[in-house]
Amino acid sequence: MSALITLDHNEPSAAPAEPAYTLGDVDALGRYPVHLNGELLGYVSRWHGTWSAVTRTGLTLPERHPDRDAAARSLAQLTDPHTPAPAAPSTPQRLTAHAHLLDPALSATTRNIVSAAVALARLDELAWLPLAGYPGADNRWLLRCLACNEFRALNDLSPWDGARFWSHLRGRNGDNIPRPLIRHEGCLPVSEHADALKVFARAPKPVCPCPESHPTSPQAARALLTTTGAAWRQRDPDALTALLTRLLGPCPASRARATALLTATGKPPALTAN
């Protein structure tokens, strides 16, 4: 019995090569630029353990990625004409009027507001000026160093702006020691930090002197948190911005305000935040 064997001389088709992208250095906003053949495609950035990608035109891809390379590949694959354009996210448009107080990606929940107030009070003591809204403990926060501001001005240097993690600035395991010890390149020597910080930590006020009337008692803080929650749920951007300004705006009594918020929510009155 004979059998006819037919040989298939066609080699299996190779999978198309993925676009060769390059990742640049992280910028002041915590973003990594993604380039393809020298052309900027967009940026990838980390948010609470996952990575997102944004095109150079500002379109945020809806998928979340486990690492920055996966996010960068999603940008690079958009150059393939056979790759469909990403669909617009189905989530409601975020409120952005309060972006200078609370990051637009954070909901105006009591937990986030209290954590932000605690962080802002501590930044006042550590001579950091926030240039963006509180983003949470594990995301980069754009800050300006005030400790060396006078020194840099005398030497015709611009203020130092850069991204820092609040989880590093608040210390670890309760030791309350900000990290890194060297605040940034070009700052004052570590041995001069203590004297520089005394200027900013001098006698915080126990009561708010501002026209916005920031709450410094648990009763006032509790009432304001309740009203703020209602404004957030109703998606009222004007009311929410005004309320968050009272809860998170600059104030000489920021420590007293943070303590009042912690007490109002039943937390120990210590300036620690998640």
Rank of each mutant, 00 (worst) to 15 (best):
Asp195Ala: 14
Ser213Asn: 13
His9Pro: 02
Asp67Pro: 06
Pro189His: 05
Leu169Val: 15
Thr22Glu: 12
Thr109Val: 01
Ala196Trp: 10
Arg257Cys: 06
Glu150His: 02
Ser2Asn: 09
Asp80Ile: 07
Pro215Arg: 11
Asp195Asn: 13
Pro135Gly: 01
Arg94Glu: 14
Pro92Cys: 00
Pro204Gly: 09
Arg233Ala: 10
Arg73Cys: 09
Ala53Leu: 03
Asp124Glu: 12
His9Tyr: 15
Trp47Arg: 14
Pro12Gln: 13
Glu63Ile: 06
Val44Ser: 03
Thr22Tyr: 02
Arg73Met: 15
Leu271His: 15
Leu244Asp: 06
Pro130Gly: 06
Ala163Met: 02
Arg246Asp: 14
Ala201Val: 03
Ala127Ser: 05
Leu123Arg: 01
Asp236Tyr: 04
Trp47Val: 04
Leu40Ala: 07
Leu78His: 00
Pro204Met: 10
Leu262Arg: 11
Ala223His: 15
Ala53His: 01
Ala70Arg: 08
Tyr21Gly: 01
Ala72Met: 05
Ile182Cys: 04
Thr22His: 09
Cys251Leu: 07
Arg179Leu: 15
Leu126Ile: 09
Trp160Asp: 11
Pro215Thr: 00
Tyr32Cys: 05
Leu36Met: 14
Ala153Phe: 07
Arg140Gly: 10
Arg235Ser: 13
Leu247Asn: 12
Glu212Ala: 10
Lys198His: 11
His9Trp: 13
Leu120Arg: 07
Asn139Tyr: 00
Ala147Phe: 04
Pro104Tyr: 06
His168Tyr: 08
Arg257Asp: 07
Trp51Cys: 00
Leu131Pro: 05
Trp51Met: 02
Leu248Pro: 01
Ser107Asp: 11
Gly174Tyr: 03
Ala260Ile: 06
Gly136Met: 02
Arg64Gln: 13
Leu181Ser: 11
Tyr32Val: 11
His48Ile: 05
Ile5Glu: 07
Ser13Lys: 12
Ala119Tyr: 06
Thr245Phe: 15
Asn112Ala: 12
Ala203Trp: 05
Tyr43Val: 03
Asp25Phe: 08
Ala117Val: 00
Leu262Gly: 03
Pro218Cys: 03
Pro180Trp: 00
Leu197Asp: 15
Ala121Gln: 03
Ala28Lys: 15
Pro204His: 13
Thr272Arg: 09
Ala85Cys: 09
Asn37Cys: 15
Asp69His: 10
Ala231His: 10
Asp175Val: 12
Leu129Pro: 00
Leu61Ile: 12
Leu75Ser: 08
Asn139Val: 11
Pro204Ala: 08
Lys205Ile: 12
Arg111Cys: 05
Leu225Pro: 02
Leu169Thr: 04
Gln93Tyr: 03
Asp103Gly: 01
Gly38Glu: 07
Asn112Val: 00
Ala230Met: 10
Leu7Ala: 13
Val199Tyr: 10
Gln219Cys: 01
Leu75Cys: 09
Asp27Thr: 14
Ala53Glu: 00
Leu146Glu: 08
Ala28Glu: 14
Gln234Tyr: 03
Leu142Gly: 04
Val26Ile: 15
Arg122Met: 09
Asn173Met: 05
Leu106Asn: 08
